[in-house]
Amino acid sequence: MQGVVKVNSALNMRSGPGSNYGVIGTLRNNDKVEIIKEVDGWYEIRFNGKVGYASKSYITIVN
């Protein structure tokens, strides 16, 4: 499943599904990501070869 990031500035990509996990990357508005699965309001995603987590509130699913 594919998604597009929708933010005003930047979205942190984290090592786990929560804001208490470390930041491993930064996503920008309109970045395209691969959604692997949903975990407690977060998406596990793949972006630029990295796998991490981002809040699903800021990612819109596209077909």
Score class of each variant (00 low, 15 high):
50 K>M: 14
48 N>V: 09
32 K>L: 14
3 G>A: 08
45 I>C: 04
6 K>I: 12
53 Y>C: 02
4 V>A: 07
14 R>S: 05
43 Y>A: 03
37 K>D: 09
12 N>H: 15
10 A>P: 15
43 Y>R: 01
54 A>L: 09
21 Y>N: 04
49 G>L: 08
62 V>E: 11
13 M>H: 02
28 R>Y: 15
23 V>N: 05
30 N>S: 10
43 Y>G: 00
46 R>Q: 14
3 G>E: 02
50 K>V: 15
29 N>L: 08
43 Y>W: 08
2 Q>P: 09
9 S>K: 09
55 S>T: 11
47 F>V: 12
58 Y>F: 15
60 T>P: 04
46 R>I: 15
50 K>C: 05
52 G>Q: 01
42 W>L: 02
14 R>T: 09
24 I>C: 04
37 K>V: 09
10 A>R: 11
46 R>P: 06
60 T>N: 13
18 G>K: 03
38 E>Q: 08
4 V>Y: 04
57 S>E: 14
8 N>R: 08
8 N>E: 14
33 V>S: 00
11 L>H: 07
53 Y>N: 01
49 G>K: 09
47 F>T: 07
39 V>D: 06
36 I>S: 05
49 G>P: 03
44 E>K: 08
61 I>L: 12
52 G>S: 03
52 G>I: 01
7 V>F: 05
9 S>T: 14
16 G>A: 03
53 Y>P: 00
11 L>K: 13
26 T>V: 13
33 V>Y: 02
36 I>K: 04
46 R>N: 15
10 A>C: 06
55 S>A: 13
30 N>W: 08
43 Y>E: 00
32 K>P: 13
49 G>N: 12
40 D>P: 07
37 K>P: 00
53 Y>I: 00
61 I>T: 07
47 F>K: 06
43 Y>N: 01
32 K>Y: 14
10 A>Q: 12
10 A>F: 13
28 R>T: 11
55 S>G: 11
11 L>M: 11
38 E>W: 05
20 N>S: 12
12 N>G: 10
61 I>C: 04
11 L>F: 07
60 T>L: 14
13 M>S: 02
57 S>V: 13
42 W>V: 01
48 N>K: 13
43 Y>T: 02
25 G>F: 08
5 V>H: 01
4 V>N: 06
16 G>W: 02
34 E>L: 06
25 G>L: 11
1 M>D: 11
32 K>M: 14
54 A>D: 00
20 N>P: 03
8 N>I: 13
4 V>S: 07
43 Y>L: 11
63 N>I: 11
17 P>S: 03
41 G>W: 06
49 G>Y: 06
16 G>P: 00
31 D>K: 03
40 D>Q: 09
13 M>Q: 03
4 V>P: 01
21 Y>K: 03
50 K>A: 15
63 N>Q: 14
62 V>M: 11
17 P>A: 05
53 Y>K: 00
27 L>H: 00
55 S>Y: 10
